[in-house]
């Protein structure tokens, strides 16, 4: 299954980036084969609406779940409408996160984990 992990670098060994909309990289990986694509976040310098845009990118990439630290309300609403599972509170490396996801111990969040503009800080 195609999942996305927000990351500080472009490899599976990179650390998770706790921000969703303004993360440095999106690692889009197949959870079975670990094949992946690292996308440099094109929305990083946006002044507003970044959560919306990053959410839309996930929809375009047909991602089924997003694993990250925090998700704000606009991104949350976008991901939810795109029927993408949102898993927050993640830490560690991208690879560890995928392994954990496969065991099924990570549960989707039901509401945004932070207020608007959190990622701007």
């Amino acid at each position: 299954m195609k999942i996305c992990i927000t990351s500080q670098g472009d490899s599976l060994e990179s650390q998770i980036d706790k921000k969703f909309g303004r993360c440095l990289y999106f690692i889009i990986a197949d959870s079975e084969t670990l094949e992946f694509e690292a996308i440099k976040n094109p929305n990083l310098d946006g002044m507003g609406g970044v959560g919306v845009q990053s959410g839309q990118l996930m929809s375009n990439k047909d991602v089924k779940a997003v694993l990250t630290g925090n998700v704000g309300p606009n991104a949350f609403q976008t991901l939810q409408a795109a029927k993408i599972d949102i898993i927050t509170g993640i830490s560690g490396t991208v690879k560890e996160t995928i392994e954990k996801y496969k065991t099924g111990e990570l549960k989707p969040a039901e509401k945004p984990s932070v207020d608007s503009n959190f990622g701007k800080k």
């Binding site: 946006g46 919306v52 929809s59 606009n74 609403q77 409408a81």
Partner: peptide
């Protein structure tokens, strides 16, 4: 719609469109 919006107030998804009025 999402493409022409300079304020990123519209999320165009594959089967849905969301409007963020405050943006």
């Amino acid at each position: 719609c999402s493409e022409v919006c300079a304020y990123k107030a519209i999320a165009a998804l594959k089967t849905d469109v969301l409007i963020f009025k405050e943006l």
